[in-house]
Design a protein around this nucleic acid. Structure first.
Lengths: 207, 207, 207, 207
DNA sequence: TATGAATGAGACTTCATTCAT
DNA sequence: CATGAATGAAGTCTCATTCAT
């Protein structure tokens, strides 16, 4: 243990990781500002302050760095979504839902540039990106549909097609994120917004 | 009348219009299949079976043909959105809303390939296209927010931030279109879906 | 004689000639205003008010109409250049030279647009144009060199290399035309200028 | 000093300069052979033996490489034109004029291909090129007219319109260059020609 | 590992010329 | 003869990626 060769390798590997992270971070801003198609590799290397060749030492292609960016956000988002606990002593269901909504919204606010990229460029960039996003969205839909189903089973929610309802809920959420996070530029009242949206979805506009 | 010169001109003009329509129609498929950025003028002329130069006889540029496509859809959509009538003897408000929702949904279903492009590539296509889409979305948001405000004034809807509610409603609708029209490939129960979404938005998931 | 067929053919031929002349005349202005390369066939047909196809009924190509224009000017110029008469009773040699200079200058002034084209576009447009202009210039050089040789033989001019002197004389003339006819836009004192140039060439700047 | 980084940078910079010069040199031949308008970027890269993109690494456009070529020549020519010194002890005025003429002629002979292009394509190449050439010609005219004015003031030259005389002188010179440098292909007796032209311009053909 | 010059496929657009009507 | 829509070769320029140093 403590072999100098290992140490050197470890340090080198850390340096490598740091550089990769640096390029990725800078790329986020550039992609957010200019869009995927509006960004050239020249822009990316200029922002990161590295040579063109260096870029390809860390990322296979322009597609791949975009994919890496995307994966970073998806990782955060996945961590924000947790199953609703029904064990005795667990927090009330509504509180749980609210805290999930808050966490997701917070993650998106914290990663505003990245969120903008994804919301603006949508899909159709690349088959790989497509699959990634579609996959995540699919998971999310399923999770929401499932949660709705459970709620209906518990008698908390009224009967309706869970898949359609999930599409509605996600779309609604998406719409709010679009207007508050993507288009607007100011601070977001994460908790208030999450609560308002949930309230709207649960009780509707009517009465 | 019945001057042969006139007749010839009329026929020429018709032929011109037909050819333009043909190129436009083929372009829709190509754009839908390959995306806006993935489509080159070469693809467009190959699909339409005309020479490169011919394309430019009918459209100024790749941007312009896409804009023409988009404008066609926006025209239909705008026509689908009408103010709610409150004159005595007018149809009940809910029915009116439903019929608006049905018309919009139907238009999107009727123009599925184009709808797919727009939903998939979202914004960030082109400055001009961007402005067009953003403008339409802005109008729509305003219209919905306004309608909600009116509803609240009439005591039909409960109080809430109309802008946020509008973002929710549009997002919700968008989410449903995404899942039923863009991602799915089968026939859509336009009326049923519209009714279900409206019901959801008005009464919520709860109870 | 006076066969109606002949008459019809003649009239048709005249009409044809008139139309050709019309296109040619309009082309002169366009070429003068935009240059050879800056002029498209579209410009030419627009100026003449005929269809694209019609243009090709009268001229083989864009090159050929330019050549035709050129030939028109060269025809005029050639007519202006005559041998110096030495027969007893002929006008004094100097007077003859002056009148030649005046005639050439006048022709160029009368055909200002065309003159501009030739002076500005020079050569290198097309092998045919090249040969035409080079041929005319060669003839002119030879004629001037010959005249100088004759003058030297008569003891009117001092000895010098006639070819070099001819290049000088023509160049000098060309320079004056460039500044007075091509670049300037006002009226030209043809006689005064011709006399001044001749005087300069014969007696020099010195003393 | 002698930092390897510096050395590498210097070598790279030299290599860059060399390559640029190489492309420029080859371009001269191509332009001379095919004319400005007859030359495509494809021709230029083929002649230089570099890839399409490489060309644009060194020159902004076809216009710009031609401008660079032209600027090189104009630099030389401008350097050849100096004011006539009248300080006591300066060389006699005539000798000074002769040496200016010799230097200009020599520069043109040394850059025969480029001289040919400019004389053959004349103006109307490109707006920027046009302005450059017209500017230089204007300067030259002014300089000559001014020199003639001075000569007239000193009583060395006889009275005449300096502008017209300048046009004559430049045209004359131009004519000689055209016949000896542009059209002919053999060696040029630079000194003899310059002396002969000056003599002709000063003393005229007459007597 | 880092660099950045070089590459070349491919994008968009123009325009002289043809040909069916 | 007249027309003008159609053609397609050719032109300019960009940019993701490679590779010798």
């Amino acid at each position: 243990m403590d072999d100098p060769g290992d140490r050197r390798m470890k340090r080198a590997s850390e340096a490598r990781e740091a550089r990769r992270a640096h390029i990725l971070r800078e790329a986020t801003s550039v992609f957010a500002a200019r869009g995927y198609h509006g960004t050239s590799v020249t822009d990316l290397v200029a922002a990161a302050g590295v040579a063109r060749g260096t870029f390809y030492l860390y990322f296979e292609s322009k597609d791949q760095i975009f994919l890496a960016l995307l994966d970073g956000l998806l990782l955060h988002l996945r961590a924000s979504v947790r199953g609703v606990e029904r064990a005795p002593g667990a927090a009330p269901v509504l509180e749980q839902l609210e805290s999930i909504a808050v966490r997701i919204l917070q993650t998106l606010v914290d990663n505003r540039p990245l969120t903008r990229i994804i919301f603006r460029e949508a899909v159709a960039l690349d088959a790989a990106v497509d699959r990634r996003l579609a996959g995540f969205y699919g998971e999310l839909s399923e999770w929401v549909a499932n949660a709705i189903g459970v709620g209906q089973g518990l008698g908390i929610l009224r009967p309706s097609d869970p898949a359609l309802a999930a599409a509605c809920v996600l779309g609604c959420f998406r719409g709010v994120v679009q207007s508050q996070v993507v288009e607007a530029d100011g601070p977001v009242d994460v908790e208030g917004t999450a609560r308002a949206v949930l309230d709207l979805m649960l009780r509707g506009l009517g009465r």
